[in-house]
């Protein structure tokens, strides 16, 4: 396991470095002069030149990358020109919203999807199975932002059970959680519909295998067979999809935070792009890419924890 972890960790670091180079190059290839954007088109060429010098834009590209990457490692992502505060602080302020939202959405997705998927597989071909399949088909077909709007109309406008948007902060945890209910459901519903289908088909496949029959020949109850033998073996494709869905959440939060007017990272990147706030955009794109890369690493580790054969193969 040690060697396995070390190898995966090295791959993770190499990937992060490669991603950071790509992000940096893409941001630099974008048209537009950052100094001009900051100062506006009415500014004097002398002022622009001075700012370019101050922002380090006259240095060679490689050197600028090393400066940026080195500073980023210490948490310094530069100053956001549109907010006029360090980018690091902008991100730190918004993490307490986006992180719990993403975590809640992931937990909601995984628990509902596995419960429904296993339930459907255990009742294969019967009413419960058809019900879950029909519901999940519907869930996959509905776009998340449209669902979010429908939820707001029903639960916030008509029934007035939950707030339609905004975030009161964590000083009042109940109000904060209430504000996150509808965004969480909007994010989780589509994802859990997909994951429930994957769970169902994976469980059905394992139930047909010889060792599931062996477990039955031991006289175990149906639920014990599912819990001990079928579900653990069905987890590999499920974990793969969960990993992809966590990556999807990144884009999902951008849409959902804007629908629900939540001051999180998704909304921040939206605003920063609109404001051509290059340092903030660069930092956020890097952060989102890092989330995806780290998720993939965790998925790999999860594979090895689930399946002893993968550990031995390294």
């Amino acid at each position: 396991m040690g060697l396995f972890l070390l190898r995966r960790l090295l791959t993770l670091i190499a990937t992060l470095v490669a991603v950071s180079i790509v992000v940096f190059l893409v941001m630099n290839a974008l048209p537009g002069d950052p100094a001009l954007i900051v100062l506006g088109i009415d500014s004097t060429p002398e002022a622009q030149a001075a700012l370019r010098e101050k922002m380090g834009l006259n240095e060679p590209l490689a050197l600028r990358y090393l400066h940026w990457a080195g500073a980023a490692l210490t948490g310094d992502f530069g100053i956001s020109h549109s907010f006029d505060v360090p980018v690091g602080r902008l991100i730190a302020e918004r993490l307490p919203l986006t992180l719990p939202l993403a975590a809640l959405a992931t937990v909601a997705t995984v628990t509902t999807a596995i419960a429904l998927g296993v339930h459907a597989a255990a009742r294969h071909g019967r009413l419960a199975d058809w019900g879950v399949m029909a519901l999940s088909q519907l869930g996959i077909a509905v776009p998340a932002f449209w669902l979010a709007i429908l939820l707001v109309i029903l639960f916030a406008v008509r029934l007035r059970w939950l707030p339609p948007g905004g975030f009161p902060g964590w000083d009042d945890p109940v109000a904060a959680l209430r504000a996150l209910v509808l965004p969480t459901v909007s994010l989780a519903l589509v994802q859990s519909a997909i994951l429930a289908r994957v769970t169902r088909s994976s469980v059905l496949e394992v139930m047909r295998l010889d060792y599931a029959r062996t477990a039955r020949a031991k006289g175990l109850s149906r639920s014990a067979i599912l819990r001990r033998h079928v579900l653990p073996n069905a987890l590999i494709p499920i974990v793969t999809i969960i990993g992809m869905q966590i990556a999807n959440l990144v884009t999902g939060t951008i849409v959902i935070e804007n629908v629900f007017y939540l001051p999180g990272l998704g909304r921040l990147i939206f605003q920063s792009i609109a404001n051509r706030d290059i340092f903030t955009v660069q930092a956020l794109v890097m952060l989102f890419a890092a989330v995806v890369v780290v998720t993939n690493f965790l998925v790999d580790v999860a594979y090895a924890l689930i399946d002893p054969r993968l550990k031995d193969r390294v």
Binding site: L209, T214, R216, A217, K218, G219, L220, H229, P232, N233
Partner: peptide
């Protein structure tokens, strides 16, 4: 009865064993 008074040995030992246990 299964596994306690009547037991079965299946054909393919590799696929009849749970690979994760």
């Amino acid at each position: 009865l299964q596994g306690r008074r009547i037991a079965m040995i299946f054909q393919e030992p590799m696929s009849a064993l749970n690979p994760l246990q």
